[in-house]
Amino acid sequence: MDNKNSKFEIFSKGLIKENPVLVLILGMCPTLGVTSSAINGLGMGLATTFVLLFSNIIISIIKDLIPDKVHIPAYIIVIASLVTILQLLLKGYLPALDESLGLFIPLIVVNCVVLGRAEAFACKNNVVDSALDGLGMGLGFALALTILGAIREILGVGSIFGYKFLAGDGIIGFVLAPGAFIVLGYMVAIAKKLKK
């Protein structure tokens, strides 16, 4: 378990093989809600990575102190505190991102990816492995959100990361709600195909 290969395995499985968005279908709300542009997708992905990394580390440290019966409330307190810290940091140092993500920042608390990893991984593994798992899952989440955001931005506005390279208006439907569902549907189908 302790050789380099398995460490890399723990980190990389979140990126593609067990991608939380495309394979596990978790954390759908922010996935669909904030990805009207690539930069928003990336910002949300990295914000979630921050919470996921630290929640996994803290929970794997305190896992032996918490009675089984109250482990869920304990985890929720830890996650909610991390989210609030993130919220304050964003407000202070990246107010533009905070504004465009809006309600979805406090909603990281109920993102099933975060609680799911705490339950499935961090409460059974050591600190280093949990940190790697959190980082991998978080970056996998960020990757999926950025791709989804990029596709929607290219089709809907004709730009990428705010850089406009197509003249004209684009297909507005892709920036709006229906486009989010439809693009994600095709992405999941492609991920399914690639996995086989």
Partner: peptide
């Protein structure tokens, strides 16, 4: 085959969202 399950559900939801617009 490739669209069975979750993918087609998403696309259905997309069309439903379109209707709600």
């Amino acid at each position: 085959e490739g669209m069975k399950g979750v993918p087609v559900a998403f696309i259905t939801a997309g069309i439903l969202a379109l209707a709600f617009m």
